[in-house]
Design a protein around this nucleic acid. Structure first.
Lengths: 342, 342
DNA sequence: TCTTAGCACTCAAAGCCTATGAGTGCTAAC
DNA sequence: GTTAGCACTCATAGGCTTTGAGTGCTAAGA
C-alpha cells in the first residue's frame, strides 16, 4: 500500500486540515492553502483515487472529503511529524509537575491531569498493574491490647497495612518474633516461591497463635501481586466536550459510562501489547464498543526497567495525533524518571 | 407565606407532573389528571395567583406552568411525601451492598455507586473529612541500608506510611529509640497539643540525626488532621445524561468540570451546616455557579456519634426529591451502621 | 500522458412561510 | 366563588425555496 509523493501530501493536508477545522476538506481549499502548485481539478482526481483506496470518505456527495480510519492509520504510521510540543512546553510541564506529586497516588493522578491539560482530551492513568514482586519486610506493630497493625513492604516499593486482632496476651515482643520468623523464611521471595517454600504450614502454625493471621497472608499476597493498586485515574473529561464531535450527548454518554466502569478501561488498555513505543489505536481498532468513535494513545511507564502501569489519552478519531503522541511519550518518560529515582 | 389547601394541591400536582414529564403543565392536564373536582378555568385562576406569589413560572405566554425555585422549595419543605423507596428496595439494597465493601475506600465508593443506581442522578461521597484525632503510635521500620518506612497510626483508626531516607549508619535499634521517644512524649495527644508541647524542639533535635524527619512530622499532621483522606468519590455521571435538561452539552460541561475539580465540591458540601437531617439545596441556593441549574441532596454519616463525611446526589432542579431524599437518608444510615460496627 | 479550465449537477444547510394546537386571560353567566 | 366560552398568543413542525460549497466529467492544452 504505497502512495506517490503527491498523494501523500494531499492525504497529509486533508488530515491536518480536518483535525484543525472538523469540517470536510474540499479540493479548492487544498489547492489554495496546502498545495499551491497544483490545480483543484488535479487534486480532485487524486482525491477520487485516495477515496477508492479507502483512505478518504465523503459524508455526502456535495461535501469535501474526510479521512477514513485507514486514512488516519496511514497518517499516524507514515506522515506524522511529531515535534508538536515545544521544548518550552516540555520544560514548564516538568517544573509544574515537580511541585506537586509526592505520594504515590498523587503522582499518577497529577500525571493524568497534566496530560489532559496538554492535549485537551480525556487522560487516563493506571496505578501499578498487577505484577510480581518480592517480600522485603513484614512488621506487626502493637496498637493497643488485642490490636495490631500489620505492615508489608515489597521490593518494588509498594506498602500496605491492615489492622488485625491478636490475642490480648500477646506483646510487641511476641509479634516481633513472629514477623522475624516470617522475614527470615521469606525475605526476597516471590509469592509463588512462598507457596512452594511451605507458606501453608507457616500459616497454619502461626494461625494457631494469631487467629487473624490469614488476613496478614492476604495482605502479603495483595502487595506482592500488586492487586489492589491498579486503580484508574482520570482527568479532563470536561475538556472533551469542547470537541465538536461531542456536541451530541449520545456520543458523550458512552464515554462517561467508562467513568463509572473503570475496570473496563483497565482491561481494555492493560491487555494491549506494550513495547516501549507509544501505541495508537484508531476508532474501531478499539475492541470496546463505547469508544469506537475515539482514538486511544497510550504508553507505559516503568520502574527500573520493569513496566509498572500505563497512561494515555482518549479523544475523537479526529485527534491531533502528533501532539497526543508527543505528550503521552513525554509524560510517561517523566513518570518513569520519578519512579526510578525513588 | 401560607397557601390554602387547594393551592397546595395544585402546586403539588404541578411539581409532580413536571418532575415526571419535564414538560410545562397546563390547566387542562391538571383538571383531568389531578384535580377532577375543579374546572380548568378555576385552576387557571389559581395558577395565576401562584405565579404572582413566585411559586410558578411560564416559559412563554402560551405554555403551561413550571415550578420556580421557590416552588420547589415549598414543595420540599411542606408537600414532600417521602415513602418513595419501597421497603423491598431498601432490603435488596442492603443485601447487595453487604457483599462488596470491605476496605475503607471501597465502602465509600460503593455507597456512591449504590446511590447513583437508586436515583439515576450523579452521586458523590466524601471520605472522612478533616477532623482532629490523637496520635496512637509512630513506628519506623528499617527497610534497607539508608531507607526506612515511617508508619503513623491515629486514634480514629487512620493509618499512613511514607518511605524516608535515613543515615546509612542508623540501625533498627536507633529508629526504635527515636520513635519510642516520640511516642512517650506525644501519645494520645492532638496535633495542636503537640505544637504546644514542644514539637518544634523535638523536630529540631531529631532532624539533626535524620535529615528527612520533617517528612515524618508532615505525615503525622496529615493523619491527625485527616487531610489526605478527604477524597471525593463519584458515581453515575453517565446517568445524568438521560435527563432531558442535559441534552444540551453545555449544561453537562459545567458538571463534568466538577469531576476534574473535586476540591471544589468538597468545600461546597463540606461547608454546609449538617445536622442529622437530609439537606436539600435548590438551584441558585447553591453558591457554586456550575450547579446553579441543579439541586443537591446531602446527608452526613457518622462514626460513634461524630460526623465522618458526607454523601449526596446532584441532579437537575426538576429532581424527584422524594426519592432522592429517602435514598440519601437510607444510604447514609447504612454507612453510619457500617462504620459504627467496625 | 498528465494537467487544467469549464460546466452541469448534487445536496446539506439556512431562511422563510404557514398551519397547528396547547395554553392562557378575560368576560359574562351561573 | 366557580365555570363556560371565546379571542388571542406563540413555540413547534413541516414544507418550500435559495444558496453555495463541492464534485465528476469532458475537452482542450502542455
Amino acid at each position: 500500500m504505497d502512495l506517490d509523493a503527491r498523494k501523500k501530501r494531499i492525504l497529509q493536508a486533508i488530515v491536518r486540515d480536518y483535525i484543525l477545522t472538523a469540517e470536510p476538506v474540499g479540493s479548492r481549499t487544498l489547492a489554495r492553502r496546502y498545495l499551491v502548485d497544483v490545480s483543484a481539478a488535479t487534486i480532485r482526481n487524486e482525491m477520487a483515487d485516495l477515496e477508492e483506496m479507502g483512505f478518504l470518505q465523503q459524508p455526502h456527495t456535495s461535501a469535501g472529503r474526510i479521512p477514513s480510519e485507514s486514512g488516519y492509520r496511514f497518517y499516524v504510521d507514515h506522515l506524522l511529524d511529531e515535534s508538536s510540543l515545544s521544548a518550552q512546553e516540555v520544560l514548564t510541564m516538568r517544573q509544574i509537575y515537580q511541585q506537586q506529586a509526592q505520594v504515590l497516588e498523587n503522582v499518577i493522578q497529577q500525571a493524568a491531569h497534566l496530560l489532559a491539560s496538554l492535549t485537551d482530551y480525556m487522560a487516563m492513568a493506571s496505578g501499578p498493574q498487577p505484577q510480581t514482586s518480592r517480600l522485603k519486610k513484614l512488621q506487626m506493630i502493637e496498637i493497643q491490647e488485642g490490636k495490631a497493625l500489620a505492615v508489608v513492604v515489597a521490593e518494588n516499593g509498594l506498602v500496605a497495612n491492615r489492622m488485625i486482632t491478636v490475642p490480648v496476651t500477646m506483646t510487641q515482643g511476641d509479634l516481633d518474633r513472629i514477623s522475624e520468623f516470617v522475614n527470615r523464611k521469606f525475605q526476597n521471595v516471590t509469592w509463588s516461591q512462598m507457596l512452594q517454600a511451605g507458606l501453608h504450614t507457616v500459616r497454619h502454625e502461626i494461625g494457631q497463635r494469631i487467629e487473624q493471621f490469614d488476613q496478614v497472608i492476604d495482605l502479603i499476597q495483595q502487595v506482592l501481586m500488586g492487586e489492589r493498586n491498579s486503580e484508574v485515574y482520570l482527568g479532563g473529561a470536561s475538556k472533551m466536550l469542547g470537541q465538536p464531535e461531542f456536541q451530541d450527548v449520545n456520543q458523550v454518554r458512552s464515554i462517561l459510562h467508562l467513568l463509572d466502569h473503570r475496570e473496563t478501561m483497565r482491561t481494555l488498555i492493560g491487555e494491549r501489547q506494550h513495547d516501549d513505543q507509544v501505541q495508537v489505536t484508531i476508532g474501531s481498532e478499539n475492541q470496546l464498543q463505547e469508544v469506537e468513535n475515539c482514538s486511544l494513545v497510550t504508553a507505559i511507564y516503568k520502574w527500573n526497567g520493569t513496566p509498572l502501569g500505563w497512561i494515555g489519552v482518549l479523544g475523537p478519531t479526529r485527534m491531533d495525533y502528533a501532539r497526543a503522541v508527543t505528550a503521552v511519550r513525554e509524560v510517561s518518560n517523566l513518570l518513569t524518571e520519578i519512579f526510578t529515582k525513588s
